[in-house]
Structures are given as structure tokens and as C-alpha cells.
Amino acid sequence: MRKFINDPSLVVDEMLEAFLIAHSDLVSATDNERVIKYKKAPIEGKVGIVTGGGSGHKPAFVGYLGRNMVDAVACGELFSSPPAQMFYDAAKAANGGKGIAILYGNYAGDNMNVSMAMEELRDEGLEVKTVVANDDVPSAPKGEESRRRGVAGEILMWKVGGAKAAMGGSLDEVIAAAQKAIDNTRSMGVGLSPCTIPEVGHPNFTIAEGKMEIGIGHHGEPGINVVDLEPAAKVAQRMCDVIIPDLPFTSGDEVAVLISGLGSTPVIELYILFNDVQRILKEKGIKIHISYVGNYFTSLEMAGATLTLMKLDEELKTCIDFECDSVGITQFQRT
């Protein structure tokens, strides 16, 4: 292990402590040390946007706290779902009296912990609803979309939900927009090398030298197959061949493209991938409305990338273009 750490058991705590100081203009602490909120949350009369999950995906999840984005985040241990108490406290921290939308990814632990937090919140008379992201195409076949995991597409779901809430949307409107966002989003990952949880001390899976894993999950969940390394153009083709027919995305569609590194892949390579992806989309007559290329949703130091496409309609376009300010994404109103 070659890591900048002090104590393997304090990785998350030290990171959060630092995050709060480094970004004190945007975020602040709550009574629960594992719940971080947007500095101005709760915002009276606005639907509260909550998310959370295991740590190790920087800038997700705390990096999307901010103006017109997420209001409160529950931060679990590395790759481990936060307990119900954290989701509960995050919902309370985001509650501006207009209802709370918990927008999170489809993982067994998160599903159980969110559902228990919701029972408590509803017992107190709070209005809480969820959208569960399931954009990772290789994690389950078509027709079994509800079994698919949530990956980088979650960012676009938060962007849309956060914008809708900021525009004054009701809880039902925010939930409907976030659900529409994820329903129109498809992702896929390719892994080149594994990652190590500091407390474990060794990678809990391997990818052989000269190989890459097609369809790998955000915690190293198994992909579709392991193949020899290929040029970026072929990798981009593989990703598009899985994602495009699944929705399907067709000629004339307008899309948001998100290419995120998984941690240790240089951004320069992400742009090379993007170049091949945009060429394939152009050939198919699919128009790119907006692009995000960078480290948006990582998996510790895993090498690799995810490609996410979101099909846009007028409502989604308005939400995606909406101004926002967060560590992960800052956007000015497009003119």
C-alpha cells in the first residue's frame, strides 16, 4: 500500500474533518459527525435533497453538496452503507418543511438502511420519498432494471433533482424529475486495476496484467467479461455498444455525456475516451447537449472509467443547465 494516510481506521473521519475546513464556504457540520450539509441547509420552503452511501467515491457524495444541488449527505465507512441513523439525521438536516427527497444508489445495504430511516421519519409525520438510481447496465440484463446498481448516473439524478427543488418544485415534482432523470440514464464501467481499502491492506480482487474488466462495478463487482487491453477507440465502442441499444438512444436524441475516471486514471485518457465516444455518437446522429469529463465518481485508486449517457427532454435540459455550485460541479447559467 502506498497511501497518504495516518491511521487506516480514521481515513473517513480525517477526510471529512478536512473537507469541512477546506470548503467552509460551501458546507458545514451537523450534530452527527458523519452527516455533512450544504451551509445554507435547511432552506425554508424548499424540498430537501438528501443522499449518502459508503465513502471512497470522491467527489461523491459530499462533493455534490451545494447551491441548487444536494442539501445533506450521510457518509458511511469506505464502501459500506451508512447506518439508518445517518440517513435519518441527514434528512432532518435537509428538512425545510416542504418534504425530503432521498436520491441514492441501488445497493442492498443502502436500501435497507434508507427504508428503516424512512420508517422513523414517517412516524414523526415528515414527508419523505426516494428515487433509487439503477443506471449500471452490465449489473443486470434488460427487463431486470430494478436489480441494476447505481453508479455515476447518480450525479445527473442529483443535478436534476437539486435544480427542480431550487426552482420551487413540490416533493412530487422533484421525485418525478429525478426518477425521469435516472430512467433516461445508462452507464457502464471498464476497470484496469483494483483498489485497496486501507483497513484491509490488500486489494480484495485482481485484474491480471495486460487485461481489463468490462462492466466492472463501483466497488469491484464483477463485470461482463475480462479481455485483453485494447485501444481507447475499441473500449469506447464496447461501452457504446452496451449503453446505446439498452435505452435505446437513437438518431435525433440529445444527450448529456459524463465520463468519470475511477480514481487513478489520468484525465488525459478520459478525454481520449471522450473523443472516441463523441465520434460514435455523431455517427449515430445523437447530439451532445452537455459534456462532463473528469473525476466525478471514483472508486478509491481503481484505474478505469465509466461512461454515462442521459437522454434529455426540455425539462431535463432545463434542470441540467440550471446554475449550481458544489465541489464536484459548478455551472453558470447557459445563455
Binding site: 459500506s80 452503507s81 447506518p83 439508518a84 442492498a108 445495504g109 435497507m112 428503516m116
Partner: peptide, 14 residues
């Protein structure tokens, strides 16, 4: 177990 321990085991044993 349900409120303080995360992951999957907290809720299952809870």
C-alpha cells in the same frame, strides 16, 4: 444495530 451499524449486517441482525 439498526440505527448505528451500517452496511447490510446492521439492518439484518437488527
Amino acid at each position: 444495530l439498526m440505527m448505528k451499524i451500517g452496511g447490510s449486517m446492521g439492518p439484518l441482525y437488527g
